[in-house]
Amino acid sequence: MADLLFYLMAALATVAGVGVVVARSPVISVVSLLASFGALAVIYLLAGYQFLAAIQILVYGGAVMVLFLFTVMLLNLGDPDVTSGQTEPLFHGSRRSLIGLCTATVMGAAGLVAVLRVAWNEMPSVLAIPEGGLDPLDQLAAQMFTRYSLPFEAASVLLLATAVGVLVIAKRNRPGEKAFPSRAVAAEAAPTAPAAPQPASKPLPEPGPEPEEVLS
């Protein structure tokens, strides 16, 4: 029963993971990732890690993915697939794809090695660890803040770097616009934008607060 559930969840996690990559709509990607997290949480539960499962759902499912969805919806990436039915090919030979492919290969290989080592019993399987009861919360905390404190901090630095990187990537530069325009720059740039037809002699009003002013 537990084995069956494990394989079911593992399959679901894998399928959902593939779904994250191949889904054409970013929202579908996020939902697939959510399903993958859910399946992982069930696997944690099967392994006896109730706390980890709950945290997985609470942090990743409840908080991080909601933020992802929020961001994806606000970014307005423009769904290419909904209207035209065309998509960018997954691999189109650019350097970006090559790097991605290399990373995926390395990570896949690492995963394969891990699985094989477990299969040959060189490394204890995750499912075999929790002999000492179902509430290793204090042990987890002790381990995390003593022995693994350096990786823990490193992970947080990595997250910070990711956040900054996302900001840089997400801010798409349009022509004639600085990467992070201040208010004054935006005000200068405004008259070049196609506005409502007006007599050229009339000075353009400040961009802004009252639409009535622009129209009058």
Partner: peptide, 19 residues
Amino acid sequence: DIGILFVLAIGGLGVYGVI
């Protein structure tokens, strides 16, 4: 053992339905 965490974790998923 983690009753309250379970409630908060699963309850927090309810927002997905809305979004």
